[in-house]
Design a protein around this nucleic acid. Structure first.
Lengths: 246, 246
DNA sequence: ATTGTACGGTTGTCTGATAACCTTATATGC
DNA sequence: GCATATAAGGTTATCAGACAACCGTACAAT
């Protein structure tokens, strides 16, 4: 029997709070692109903290690409298109619409990756793929470990493209999606359909091994659409018949 | 007083270099996941900088999700798959192979986006698309402004999907690619083929307006492959004939 | 065995100072 | 008059040292 003290609001990292506050000023347009921010001294006075905290906050914004600093001049808000990092707040994915959108983005990426992997994979890639499959089939079926194995499977396919960016982006997106599913904990119904999932994975693996990109793409598409419907997602669908993207 | 040049060369942004150095220690596995980093004092001594710089470096790693810090305890390396932001160093794209890889990632994303935009765009989206087109055709042909208009065109297509993540990712990738092209400055030859590019853009726009996702996908694919060959890129190609991804 | 407490270590924040750098204005030389 | 050199002031970058907040552990007290 545990009391729920989860609503206690911990003191949460001063610089982060100030950074998000300044960031909101920029996002909401109260500070337009190219405009100079107040000096660190003034910001420190304004927020009632020391300059160190302000500096750390600005450093965070700089890392996210929202501002640029020039020594001896000041800090400037940059254009949104200018930022050199992508970040997704996990909280956003709690909304179903946002979750669907990310899943829809995942579709073309993974399908294309399957096609590329069919062409580019090495024998070693296949071995690793089989290892991930084994971890799913053997032992605990859909525990934490099974989910990790599922993630590893998709990551390994991305890696088999031998295109660093496919691995980077797919790994990132798949991780976010799996995390969102995990926190939502609708996993209760998932235990019974794990067999289907495994079968679909095997189909993808076999298509890869045969070095048939069309079959690999089709298998991945089938798998993802199956996963989507299992999650009760309604994805944009059009019944076009087009060639593969390459 | 001791002269000591064996430490860190201070040409540009000290914390960033130290952050990447520590980050490499983690990525290369010299510091395994969950392991505790040296204390800030020790790190400061090790790198020959002040604690402020080390703190800023660790703050950066924390933003990238590579480490977690607990007050009174220390900083700990986290799992790689745990990071909640994607970043691409612009320097990487100077290598042709890396540039090609990113362009290849762009293909399925933009093609899918064209198909979705054909279905989901509003009248207002079309107006904005035409504005971007006008900026390309009118006035200066392939100056800085023309390139920006090209970027705006592709961003507007992504926006027309009304899927926030397509806009986020495509905008990010297209920006990186355009920046890399810009710095490479092979733009000399581009002036003469701008007419072709504009024609391809118009074709995409018309396909969108007709709300025909298949035609839109095909037009985008044709455009991107044309752009790739103009940049002398050799993309992975397989002649599969598959259905659209949705 | 549980609770209370003191202690050392670590990160978080503050304060003040110095160095490096940029912009602008002024002075200087031609 | 004009271009260049120099000085001045402001801003960020870095440094140094201190204290506060917090954690884990060891040990004493009950």
């Amino acid at each position: 029997m545990v009391m729920d003290f989860s609503q206690i609001r911990r003191n949460e990292h001063l610089p982060a709070r100030i950074a998000s506050q300044i960031g909101r000023e920029i996002s909401d347009g109260r500070i337009t692109a190219g405009e100079k921010l107040p000096t660190e001294h003034i910001l420190a006075k304004t927020f009632g903290v020391s300059r160190s905290v302000v500096r750390e906050a600005i450093a965070q914004l700089r890392n996210e690409g929202l501002v640029e600093t020039r020594q001896g001049v000041g800090a400037f808000a940059t254009d949104i298109e200018h930022r050199h990092s992508i970040r997704i707040e996990q909280g956003n994915l709690a909304h179903r619409a946002s979750f669907q959108s990310l899943f829809q983005l995942r579709l073309p990426l993974e399908i294309e990756a399957a096609g590329l992997a069919a062409v580019n994979h090495t024998d070693e890639d296949l071995v690793r793929l089989d290892e991930a499959l084994e971890q799913m089939t053997g032992g605990e079926k859909w525990t934490e470990k099974g989910i990790l194995a599922d993630l590893a499977f998709h990551r390994q396919i991305a890696a088999s493209t031998h295109n660093e960016y496919f691995l980077l982006f797919i790994g990132f997106i798949a991780e976010r999606i799996h995390l969102a599913i995990n926190t939502a904990r609708e996993a209760a119904v998932l235990t019974e359909i794990v067999e289907v999932t495994i079968a679909e994975h095997v189909a993808i693996r076999d298509a890869l091994a045969s070095r048939d990109p069309v079959r690999a793409r089709e298998a991945m598409r089938h798998h993802l659409h199956g996963a989507a419907s299992r999650l009760d997602l309604q994805l944009e669908v059009y019944w076009g018949v087009g060639r593969g993207s390459s």
